[in-house]
Nucleic acid binder design. Sequence first.
DNA 1: AGCGTAAGTAATCGACTGATAACCTGTCAA
DNA 2: TTGACAGGTTATCAGTCGATTACTTACGCT
Lengths: 200, 200
Amino acid sequence: MSADDSQEPTGRMSAADRRSQVLAAAVQAFAAGGYHGTSTDAVARQAGVSQPYVVRMFGTKLELFLEVFDHAVARIHDAFAGVAAQDGFDVATEDGVAQLGEAYTDLVADQALLQVMMHGFSAGSVPEIAAHARTGMARISATLRSTGLDDDSVRDFIAHGMLLNVMLAMRSPEHLGADPDLDALTVCTFGEALPGPAEV
Amino acid sequence: MSADDSQEPTGRMSAADRRSQVLAAAVQAFAAGGYHGTSTDAVARQAGVSQPYVVRMFGTKLELFLEVFDHAVARIHDAFAGVAAQDGFDVATEDGVAQLGEAYTDLVADQALLQVMMHGFSAGSVPEIAAHARTGMARISATLRSTGLDDDSVRDFIAHGMLLNVMLAMRSPEHLGADPDLDALTVCTFGEALPGPAEV
DNA sequence: AGCGTAAGTAATCGACTGATAACCTGTCAA
DNA sequence: TTGACAGGTTATCAGTCGATTACTTACGCT
């Protein structure tokens, strides 16, 4: 858990490659601690590079976070757009909404993206982050709307996603069995898509 | 915005009074910045006392936050319990759910409580906070369940609340008109209960 | 070969944060 | 009056963080 998760050949790399590697590391780091709770040094250690290098690559911790956040939002957005573009997709069928829901619960497998998005959404005290959050939320809701869902359904869908994010953030799935009341909410939120007791 | 919002007689007070005053200030401060993003000094300034006094009163920044969080959850919990205890309350009627919804949107008037709750819910990287978050969420969902709502309705209700929290956190209501896509989601989330352009 | 540039680090700084210690002071009981 | 305790502050510290500077080293090109 200390350094260089996933990437081992820490030898020299092209700037572009290194950049995306650090970005991936930053996703993991920020997913855990949020903007304020994550140091650039934590990101650096996760990526296996030095701390000054991280800030020099992105200019500022804030710019780094915004890039990480935008990346997460884009990936989530793409997941929905991908489903909507599938042959025979029809949101009018109950199967249609189910497919969209699956797209989201699939993202649970890559918890970090959802957590980063969540942290961006709730970091309203940093104006730039709040601005990106509004743009990201607008983009996602527009895409859902464009699949044919009406406004209320879009709202309900996103609302359910937010609950899912929150339940993940508070580690509910990992604590199944500890509290019957929470268990009920957990299973009924995640359905059968409960993430395993896997990684952090 | 610098010191001693609301309370002016900053002269000597009983320990209990001062404690609840600082607690109220801490709610405002943590609501804005979350756990990591708020310093004990910010809380102290908001309360009009010195920073060391704040930490001595609560022992630790973490203990202070947990107390603030529990307080927020308790107030929100009470709001629902209060509605459920009203004469003639019946969740089977569509008026019943509407009443519960109103109870929540009423809380929007005191945004700080919701924001503190939200921050607690997403501060999963601090184990103690996550534990309190799970307990709080369990308590709230149990109370909703006890009004007669079935599990799915409880989930939907809480999900809607989470979306509301998130939209507040990203200052959506204050930015109405800037983005049509976000506007649609905003008005359809808040209904007619849109908070005015009032305080921070 | 050898040099220039891009990749990357070590050293360090100033600001801030949470916490501790030591001190001050108003109020109330005897 | 006086003394003691509760309420509250100033001074200060050690650790952490984001950022800057200056230095080093590997690779590609002629």
